[in-house]
C-alpha cells in the first residue's frame, strides 16, 4: 500500500481513535453514569448496534463505487422485516414449528433481493439515473409497507429466534458476526473478483469500461441485488430480536448509510472507495452517538453534531488529499 492510500484509508481509523480518547476523557468529567466509556461491554454493544445500518452501508459502498446510489434501502428494510415476521404467522408455517425460521429468513432475503433486482433492471434497461429510479422506489416500496398493515405494527415474537439473536459467540453478538461476515465477503468480492474490479472501472470511467468489453448493465443489476439482499439481511438480524415492525421503521436509513459510506472516504461520483473504510465510517458514527449520549447530549444535539462533523471531516479529507495529489485542477 503506498503512502497516498494509507492517508486516505487510514484517516477514518485515526478519527475513531480521536473519538475514543475524547469521550473517555470528557466522560470522566461529564458522564451521567459511573461506567467508563471504553468499558468492554459497552464496546461490544456498540458493535451490535452498528450492525443494522452497517450492513446496509456495506451494500451502499459497492453501489456507490459502481457509480450509482440506492435511496430505497430503508423501505426495503421495512418490507423485508414485515415479510419476516408476518410469514411466521401463516398457518402452514406455524405447522412447521421452528423450521419456519429458516424459511421466514429465506422469504425476507428473497424479498430484498427481488426489490433490489427491480431497481437494477430499471436502471439497466431504461438508462434512467439511479438516483431518480431509487427515489421512486423509496416512495413505492414504502407505500407497499403501509398497504400491508396500514398504520398498525406487524408483530410476531419467536423465542427461539430471540435466543439466537441475543446469543454471543466469542464475546460478539450475533448481529456483530453478521456485520463482520458480510464485510469480509464483500471485501473479497470488491478486491479479488472480476465483478469487483469491473465495478470500480465502470464507476471511474464508464466509457473506457464499455470499450474494454465490459457489460455495464449486469454489474449494475448484481450490485442492486446485493444491496437489496443486504437491506433484508439487516432486517433479519434486527427484527429477529425485536419481533415488531412499525410501518415507519427504516426511514432515513438510506441517508445514515450514505453518511457512513462517505465518511469512510468512498466518492459520491463513483470509482473509488473501500468496504473496510465504510466499516470504519459506521463505527465512527455509532461512537459519536453513543459518546455524545454518554456525556449527556440529547438526540437533537447528537444529529446536529454528526452533521457538522461530517462536513468538517470531508473538508479535512479534501485538504489532505489535495496535499497528496495537487494536480487536481480545481
Amino acid at each position: 500500500m503506498n503512502k497516498e492510500t494509507l492517508i486516505k484509508q487510514g484517516g477514518i481509523w485515526v478519527f475513531i481513535l480521536v473519538e475514543l480518547a475524547f469521550f473517555s476523557i470528557a466522560g470522566e468529567f461529564l458522564s451521567v453514569t459511573d461506567v467508563a466509556f471504553m468499558d468492554y461491554g459497552n464496546m461490544l454493544l456498540l458493535l451490535k448496534q452498528s450492525a443494522p445500518i452497517g450492513i446496509i452501508a456495506l451494500g451502499m459502498t459497492i453501489v456507490m463505487i459502481n457509480g450509482n446510489i440506492d435511496l430505497s434501502v430503508g423501505a426495503t428494510f421495512a418490507l423485508a422485516a414485515i415479510v419476516l415476521l408476518d410469514s411466521m404467522t401463516w398457518p402452514f408455517m406455524q405447522a412447521l414449528g421452528d423450521w419456519a425460521i429458516p424459511l421466514a429468513w429465506l422469504f425476507a432475503l428473497l424479498t430484498g433481493t427481488v426489490l433490489g433486482a427491480i431497481n437494477g433492471l430499471i436502471v439497466w434497461k431504461t438508462g434512467v439515473d439511479a438516483f431518480i429510479v431509487t427515489l421512486g422506489a423509496m416512495l413505492g416500496y414504502r407505500g407497499l409497507v403501509f398497504m400491508y398493515n396500514g398504520e398498525q405494527p406487524t408483530s410476531h415474537l419467536n423465542w427461539t429466534l430471540v435466543d439466537f439473536a441475543e446469543a454471543q459467540f466469542l464475546g460478539l453478538h450475533t448481529a456483530t458476526w453478521f456485520l463482520l461476515g458480510a464485510a469480509l465477503v464483500l471485501w473479497l468480492v470488491m478486491t479479488r473478483t472480476v465483478h469487483g474490479r469491473n465495478a470500480y472501472a465502470i464507476g471511474n470511467n464508464r466509457e473506457a469500461a464499455v470499450n474494454a468489453g465490459i457489460r455495464v448493465g449486469p454489474h449494475f443489476l448484481w450490485n442492486f441485488m446485493l444491496i437489496g439482499f443486504l437491506a433484508a439481511l439487516s432486517a433479519v438480524v434486527f427484527y429477529s430480536e425485536s419481533g415488531s415492525v412499525n410501518p415507519n421503521d427504516g426511514m432515513l436509513y438510506e441517508l445514515w448509510a450514505i453518511t457512513a459510506v462517505v465518511l469512510g472516504g468512498t466518492k459520491l461520483t463513483g470509482g473509488y472507495g473501500s468496504i473496510i473504510s465504510t466499516l470504519g465510517g459506521v463505527i465512527a458514527i455509532q461512537l459519536l452517538r453513543k459518546g455524545l449520549g454518554h456525556i449527556g447530549a440529547d438526540t437533537e444535539t447528537v444529529n446536529l453534531v454528526i452533521g457538522l462533523i461530517l462536513i468538517a471531516v470531508l473538508f479535512l479529507d479534501r485538504q489532505l488529499n489535495r496535499r497528496g495529489k495537487e494536480e487536481l485542477k480545481t
Binding site: T193, V194, R197, N198, Y200, A201, N204, N205, E207, A208, A209, N211, A212, G213, I214, G271, Y272
Partner: peptide, 24 residues
Amino acid sequence: KGQGLVLGMNCRDNMTLPQVDDMT
C-alpha cells in the same frame, strides 16, 4: 483519457481490464 483509461485505477488493472474475466 475519455475512452481508453480508467484514470483512478492502477497501471496493472488498467492494462488487464478487457481480460480479467479470463484470468480468474
